[in-house]
Design a protein around this nucleic acid. Structure first.
Lengths: 214, 214
DNA sequence: ATTACTAAAAGACGAGTAA
DNA sequence: TTTACTCGTCTTTTAGTAA
């Protein structure tokens, strides 16, 4: 939990570019802790594959692994999202359609559900609301960026693809748009997820016009 | 310690722009903790003046204070330092001179020393090595940026100014350049600090040519 | 529903110490 | 000098519960 703060400090000391020579006491002063804590923290970071260490007389050479760099990049991108995100409330309009029922299947997979809970803070209803976008919506959809990564995974000899999640609202319902990264996915359909059954709760049926705000 | 991570999450949820309605359970899912922990963390953030809260039926409105935003900005700038820092090893040459002895005085003030320890990871020797820069050095000095902020403070009815610190090396000695932000400070003198007495350790005397690498 | 208290469990910390 | 172990203490967490 607090490892990321130590990792950031290591990066600031240059361990992101090249191995840096540090003793536990050196680094202890930087993070204002005891050498014992540093020893433990180095072990923890190493166990998690975030740093590499090589012991030397008088200290150790410490460098970040790719995984460590990636973790910091993720943090960095979150801060960019906070400070560089221009308030451009994107609105996508379209009509409710019936999908192939895939959504229901995917939304029941634990590999996805866990990520949704982490990203969105709610457990999505097992099913997606499919929205056929109007012309403007198709254009807007393509412009979407800054979404939160949804990672693919393997299970039972099958591979499940990743994508991006955009917290959004449909009316006053908080939910999210899911954009799979499958290359040949139709660009005119939007999949919206929410903690509840939207069709039931909002009394939606095919052909109804809805607006999603991202 | 871990409050900053919760604060970041709150900012991502929009609390940096406007109050966001959250229950402890909602936020617990976001940070993967229990509602009890959220309750405590909200209290902690509030006590530290990082957030404002207003209780509502079904949750509470949470927003960041200016202090909270500032803390995140500081984090953000550290990440920028990691990822956007161009490797441009700056070299400044000059001759050792004797200062007015101010350095020794300032370097003995606890208000500065604590910051140096935190920033640099060592307790500086109480005294600065003053270096009169050559022409190129003066130009290079002006270009310096991305230093780590050294905050001013008040003590005994006096105000002590802030500045910037640039980790640097003199030969193989790790130390730092300190640039006070006093407006009329001579632009041709560099103050170098280190954990040791440089004059003694390196046998330096006035007029000796040295090179500082930032 | 909430929030937040208490109490018990879990985890992190630094002092002491061995290698 | 190092690193990293054990161990006692302090801190943080969650479960249970009251308001």
């Amino acid at each position: 939990m607090v490892d990321v703060l130590a990792l950031k400090k290591l990066a600031l000391l240059g361990a992101i570019h090249a191995p840096v020579k540090l003793s536990t006491l050196d680094f202890a002063k930087h993070i204002q802790a005891s050498p014992q804590t540093v020893s433990r923290r180095f072990q923890s970071l190493e166990r998690k594959g975030l740093i590499l260490r090589r012991h030397m007389p008088g200290g150790q050479m410490v460098s970040l692994t790719q995984k460590g760099v990636d973790l910091l990049k993720k943090e960095f991108s979150e801060y960019r999202q906070i400070f560089e995100f221009k308030a451009k409330p994107c609105r996508l309009k379209g009509r409710v359609i019936t999908g192939l029922g895939e959504g229901q299947y995917y939304m029941s997979l634990d590999g996805y559900v866990k990520q949704f809970v982490k990203i969105l803070g709610f457990r999505p209803f097992p099913g997606t609301l499919n929205i056929k976008l109007d012309e403007d919506g198709i254009i807007e959809r393509r412009k979407l960026n800054g979404g939160i990564a949804l990672h693919g995974f393997k299970s039972h000899q099958r591979t499940y693809g990743g994508g991006h999640v955009y917290p959004a609202r449909l009316g006053r319902i908080k939910g999210a748009v899911v954009i799979p990264e499958r290359t040949h996915y139709p660009a005119d359909v939007l999949e919206f997820i929410a903690p509840i059954n939207l069709r039931e709760k909002l009394g939606l049926k095919d052909g109804d016009v809805v607006e999603v705000r991202i």
